[in-house]
Design a protein around this nucleic acid. Structure first.
Lengths: 112, 112
DNA sequence: CATTTATATGAATATATGTTAATATATTCA
DNA sequence: TGAATATATTAACATATATTCATATAAATG
C-alpha cells in the first residue's frame, strides 16, 4: 500500500511522467533527457531520483554517461500497463526525441 | 496529461486510496466512511472533495446523507483497472466495512 | 595531471498539500 | 419552528514537494 503511494506520487508530476513516457520508448542518458525536455540538468537529475526510488526506472553507468531505462519488473505492474494504454508521449516530446536520436547527441555532447 | 496528473495526485495519498477501495465495494455515505476509517469527518470530506475533483467519485444527496460512489466512467480507465488488479482493501478496512454494514449504521447514526 | 564533460547532491526557497478546529449549510424531526 | 444530525467549507498550520543555484564527484581527454 505504501509502495503504491510512492508509485502514484512519483507519477503525479508532469516532468516525471514525461520522462517515464520517453524512457518507455527506449533508454536515454541524462544529457539526452536534458536536451529533449529542454530543462535544467539538476531538475532532470532530481526527477530521475524520484522515479528511481519508486522503482520505476533503473540506471547504469556507461563511460561518462548514466543510462536510464524503465524497470521491466515494474512495467509488468497493472497500473503501469494501464498508464501505457491511457497515455502517450506528446507530439512535441516525440519530435524532440527523434531529433535527438538523429543528431546522435550523446556522442557529440562535448561539442556543443 | 494534466488530467492524469490530477488522477495520480488524488491516488497518491493513503487515506484517499483507502476511501476509493472502499467505494469500489459499494457506495457509502460520509458518516459510514468516518465510522469505518475512524477519522475526523472534515478529513473525510476533504479527501472526498479531492477524489471528486479528479472525477474518481460521484456524489448524490439522499435525505440528510450524501452518498458517494465510484464514477463508472473513470473505473473503465486502464489505470484504475490496473489499480483494481494490484491493490486490495486491507483486511482491517474490510472488517470495519462489514461491521458497519451489519450495524446498519446509516439508519442509526442519530442514536450514537 | 589538469581540464572538460556528465551527472549527482545539498541548501535555499517558494509553493502545494494534508490535517485539524471552528463554523456554516442543509435536512430531518419533535 | 427550533434542536439535532450530516456534511461542507474556511482558516491556520505544519509538512512535503518542486525548482534553482552552487558545488561535489567521477570519468574522459588532451
Amino acid at each position: 500500500m505504501e509502495k503504491m503511494g510512492k508509485l502514484f506520487r512519483a507519477l503525479a508530476d508532469e516532468t516525471r511522467l514525461r520522462i517515464y513516457l520517453l524512457l518507455l520508448k527506449g533508454e536515454l542518458c541524462v544529457c539526452e533527457l536534458v536536451d529533449i525536455l529542454n530543462m535544467e540538468q539538476s531538475r532532470i537529475s532530481h526527477s530521475l531520483r524520484v522515479l528511481r526510488e519508486a522503482s520505476l526506472v533503473d540506471d547504469r553507468r556507461e563511460g561518462k554517461w548514466i543510462i536510464y531505462s524503465v524497470n521491466p519488473e515494474m512495467s509488468r505492474n497493472g497500473i503501469i500497463q494501464g498508464l501505457r494504454d491511457e497515455l502517450k508521449l506528446s507530439t512535441q516530446d516525440l519530435k524532440n526525441l527523434d531529433r535527438c536520436k538523429k543528431e546522435k547527441l550523446r556522442e557529440k555532447c562535448k561539442k556543443r
